[in-house]
Structures are given as C-alpha cells and as structure tokens.
C-alpha cells in the first residue's frame, strides 16, 4: 500500500528525513513510531503530496507520488498533525464543504454525501453534535471531527498522524476499537505516534524512526522477542532464591527474574521443592525497551551537545 525508496527531505541545512524505506502492506495496522521531531510528520506530508521529497521514490496504492496524487488521494483518508476545520461552521457543514471540494468516487459519491456525513459523525461519536460551530468544541471533539473527515471518503488507506491526541482514555479506547473494526473490514491503517502503549495495543507492524532514519521495521511480535530470561511469581520467594541460587538476577517482592533457565525447568524445580508457583512466563521485551534502545532523545529536548540540533525539523 505504501512503499518508499530512499525517501529524503532536506529543509535548507536540516535533514528532516534521511533515506527512509517504508513498506506498508495491505491489511496492516502500521505504527510509525519515533520521538518528537524525528521526521514522522514530514514523512506523512510527503506521502500525501503536501511536501515534495528532495530525493527518493514514493508509491501509494501502487501509484507514484506526487505524480499521480490526484488518482490516489480520493482513496486515502488523512489526518495530518492537528485536525482543522472552519471555526465558524458546524461539524456537519465542515464535512459537507470538504466533501464537495474534491472529486466524487464510486464509493463516495455526491448522492450519498449526506448519508456519509451522518455515518462518520456517528462512527466517531459526534452524532448528536447539532449546529454548534466548531470553535466551541473541546480538543477531543475536534480530534473526533478530524478522524471523521478522514473516514468521509470511505478510504482504502487511512494515514493518521497522532490520531488520539487530546482524547481521554475512554475516547482513546473508542477510537482504537473503531480503527480495529475498520481494519477488519479491509482498511489499511498507517498511523504515526510517539505513544508506545498506543501502538503496542493497536498495531500489527511497526516502523521506528529516529532523527530522520528508519532504524527498525518489523512485525510487532517480532520486535517484542523473548529476552531469554524467565519471570516467576512464587509463594516463598526467600526459599526460591535459596533453591535457584545463582540463577536469580532480580527480585521484586514475590516476583523473581531468572536467567540461564527455562519456564519448564524452573517450575519443575520449584514444585519439587514444594514452593507454590503463581505465575511463570518467559520475559518479553516491551516495545518501550526496543524503541528506547533504538532511538535518541526527542528533538524537544535541547541539551548542551549542539550537534543534535542540526537534525531538528524547522
């Protein structure tokens, strides 16, 4: 659905995106992760033909961008950075105007516009919003409206930049469920985020970007591989430490971290020694470990080492 080769963008002396090779496949829920200022938004803008690449190629839905942007974009729904709407108009009018501005497609025609507007407002939970102008909306409502406008054209591909910005936990969950539902119905989702937990819960594939470079791209389960250590929770931690002498590398209350053993071996020995085992599992890396291991500080932190600032996005 999205492929890029050596995608590079330079703003003056600043290298915002540096030879990125993205590979988003049909049916993916792709999480594009990276610290603030690492080039996520610039990449998203290039995918949508808003910003022109300095070097490299982009293909979206099999067509080159920006050359065939006009054929591709009707099938793409997008949320770029913040949602935006005309503040003096209502949600419904905003969506209607936006829809009328662009070309109709088979799935999103002029005739079913009213129906689609009602549908997407319902999907994002703004069904009974009425005629209040957008300037009276809360941050979360604007975000919902932004997602509604991305869905309006019944797209095959959703490109969402930080889709849960400004939403409360309840709202985040609703949007997550909405996105999973759409994905099951066949929509490919590409979302950028700096919220690891969010990507971990929603995405099937992950790309990690740092200072403009793509430093990892793999299935989420692949990234979150086992560490080789074992986690157990036992009834008698002191006894267990004595029993498994030398294997225990960490202890937190009744939880032990074991190295150089397996779940099977450890539980067998513990049970033999009549120590109750409440839980036992191989330790997995969290996405946080992976990403923090791969990336540097976000560009919003400006330390003494001046060289990093050259990588900032303007």
């Amino acid at each position: 659905m999205i492929t890029t080769h050596g995608l590079t963008k330079r703003f003056g002396r600043v290298l915002a995106v540096d030879s990125v090779d993205l590979d988003v496949r049909e049916g993916d829920r792709y999480g594009f992760l990276g610290p603030n200022g690492s080039g996520k938004t610039t990449t998203v803008r290039m995918l949508l033909g808003l910003v022109y690449a300095t070097r490299g190629e982009i293909e979206v839905l099999g067509e080159p961008i920006p050359k065939h942007v006009r054929d591709v974009l009707p099938e793409v729904g997008a949320l770029v950075e913040n949602p935006a709407a005309y503040p003096h108009l209502s949600a419904r009018t905003n969506l209607t105007i936006l829809d009328a501005s662009g070309p109709p497609t088979d799935r999103a025609s002029r005739r079913n516009r009213r129906q689609r507007v009602g549908e997407v407002l319902e999907q994002v939970g703004l069904a009974s919003i009425g005629r209040r102008p957008v300037k009276t909306y809360s941050l979360g409502m604007r975000q919902r409206l932004g997602i509604a406008s991305a869905l309006l054209g019944r797209p095959r591909l959703l490109v969402l930049d930080e889709p849960t910005n400004g939403l409360d936990p309840q709202g985040i969950r609703e949007i997550r469920e909405l996105l999973v539902g759409l994905n099951r119905a066949g929509t490919t989702i590409f979302m950028s985020s700096h919220l690891l937990a969010e990507v971990e819960q929603l995405c099937t594939r992950v790309g990690v970007v740092d200072r403009g470079r793509l430093v990892a791209q793999a299935a989420l389960t692949e990234l979150r591989g086992e560490t080789g250590r074992t986690l157990v929770r036992v009834g008698d931690p002191a006894g267990a430490v004595g029993l498994l002498d030398g294997r225990v590398v960490g202890r937190d209350g009744d939880r032990l971290v074991l190295a150089g053993t397996t779940v099977a071996e450890a539980t067998a020995r513990l049970v033999q020694a009549r120590i109750a085992v409440h839980e036992a599992a191989p330790e997995r890396r969290t996405l946080e470990d992976v990403v923090l291991g791969l990336t540097s500080h976000g560009s919003d932190r400006v330390d003494g080492d001046g060289h990093r600032t050259e990588q900032l996005q303007p």
């Binding site: 974009l73 949602p83 935006a84 005309y86 936006l98 501005s101 662009g102």
Partner: peptide, 14 residues
C-alpha cells in the same frame, strides 16, 4: 492559518 489548506489539498483539490 486554520490548517484547512492541507486538508483541502489531500481531499484532493489540485
């Protein structure tokens, strides 16, 4: 300024 320019362009409006 309102940010609607980018949404018009990706709608797409040439």
């Amino acid at each position: 300024t309102t940010g609607t320019l980018r949404y018009l362009l990706v709608r797409p409006v040439g």
